[in-house]
Design a protein around this nucleic acid. Structure first.
Lengths: 226, 226
DNA sequence: GGACAAGTGGAAGCACCCGTCCACTTGTCT
DNA sequence: AGACAAGTGGACGGGTGCTTCCACTTGTCC
């Protein structure tokens, strides 16, 4: 991102600077996982043992830092789709895939949200998402062909499910840490071909993209009263 | 709430004060509906044409104001359950009910969140919720008895669904205003008895209560990067 | 119409977080 | 070892929102 043509993120940096950069990313990973994407930058800096100035010079916007912090997890996310394609049973592969990524959401408060957003400036990051999406599309095709996935299942339904799961996770928090498993159970059964009553139309891809883009400026969301 | 023993909320107030109170509640309803529960108090005051001081004296905490603003909608919420019970077809009643309250969430950003929270100090408010809950429990019983609702459907599943729908609504926002309908379609099909693969256990009532209680102090949630 | 309680509004103090800027430190290269 | 670029941290100015407080206004009742 901030490096010229380098294969590795921190190339060209002085060794101490590179060490700090790695610390920052590690600290961000922890902080995002524990508290979600909106932890104060200063907390991350303190956790990394650097000043805020250092953090901002390396990652000028929060989105940059988020992209750096979740790059590895985003790769794992893409790998999961690839692995699911390797499953000999298309339907089983589909179900395990959905469960896996929902579990990834459950394990990291930051990732919960990251999977419902897009970060157009983070190239490698979005490339992983695109790979995952392509493999998932293939996965859907196979599962439909096998007659197990309902024919009207749309690729847009996956991000929608992730948004729903994010809602369950953030609302329930630690009060019922496994509730999301049941929820995903419901979703998967709704995806089965046998229960294929007609559904309202899915959102258009462009609509989902706009939704995942979010407002670019200052902005908040839910939050509790008092 | 702020009145001694009165049947009506604003009893005992000077007429001008009562007029202001009503304006405040009306302004809060609008503001919450448009921007969610975390609109600045000052915006509400300005919309009502009063000073913040007036607002705070009448409703000392945000929760008080939220309860006042959504009391009517909460009654409507309870009525919907009662009406659903009147439906001669238990399954149809169940489906219409779920669709109705999800539509109520979709129509009001504040209510989206309100339905996933509890406000223990707002007596009348929570009484409506309890009525709705009791009727919903009856609704479930009937639909199960009719063999249409899966036997392992739990009353705790409804609040979980509302949390999920809240996730869809807040993430998608205005980008795909009807996406929630499709989502609810999925949920309902998953509730049908015919698709009754076993599910993970539901959360305990106490867990759901704790979840809906939220943290009582300062606190934020998702929010986007950048 | 006068007196007093009730009600009002908005300024002020506080807390939080963002993002910048620059005097100082540290690595690196010769 | 010296010199210079690279890197650092945290103080600072700016913005937002919460909540309190009190000098002033306005209804109400006699």
């Amino acid at each position: 991102m901030s490096s010229p043509t380098a294969p590795h993120a921190g190339a060209g940096l002085r060794v101490d600077a590179e060490r700090n950069r790695q610390r920052i990313v590690a600290a961000a990973r922890e902080a995002f996982a524990e508290h979600g994407l909106d932890v104060p930058m200063e907390d991350i800096a303190r956790r990394a043992g650097v000043g805020v100035g250092t953090l901002y010079r390396r990652y000028p916007t929060r989105a940059d830092l988020v992209a750096a912090a979740f790059e590895a997890k985003m790769s794992a996310y893409a790998d999961a789709a690839r692995q699911a394609l390797a499953d000999p049973d298309p339907w089983h592969g589909f179900c395990v895939y959905v469960e896996t990524i929902c579990a990834m959401q459950a394990g990291d408060r930051g990732f919960t949200t990251v999977l419902t957003m897009t970060f157009p400036t983070a190239k490698q990051f979005e490339a992983s998402r695109d790979h995952a999406f392509a493999d998932f599309t293939a996965l859907i095709g196979r599962a439909k062909a096998a007659g197990r996935l309902r024919a009207d299942f749309s690729t847009e339904d996956l991000p929608m499910f992730l948004m729903a799961n994010a809602g369950v996770l953030t609302s329930i928090g630690d009060a019922a840490p496994d509730a999301w498993r049941r929820f995903v159970g419901y979703l998967l059964q709704a995806c089965a071909a046998q229960s294929a009553q007609p559904l309202p139309d899915p959102p258009a891809p462009r609509q989902m993209y706009r939704a995942m883009l979010r407002a670019t400026g200052r902005q908040r969301q839910q939050r509790a009263g008092r």
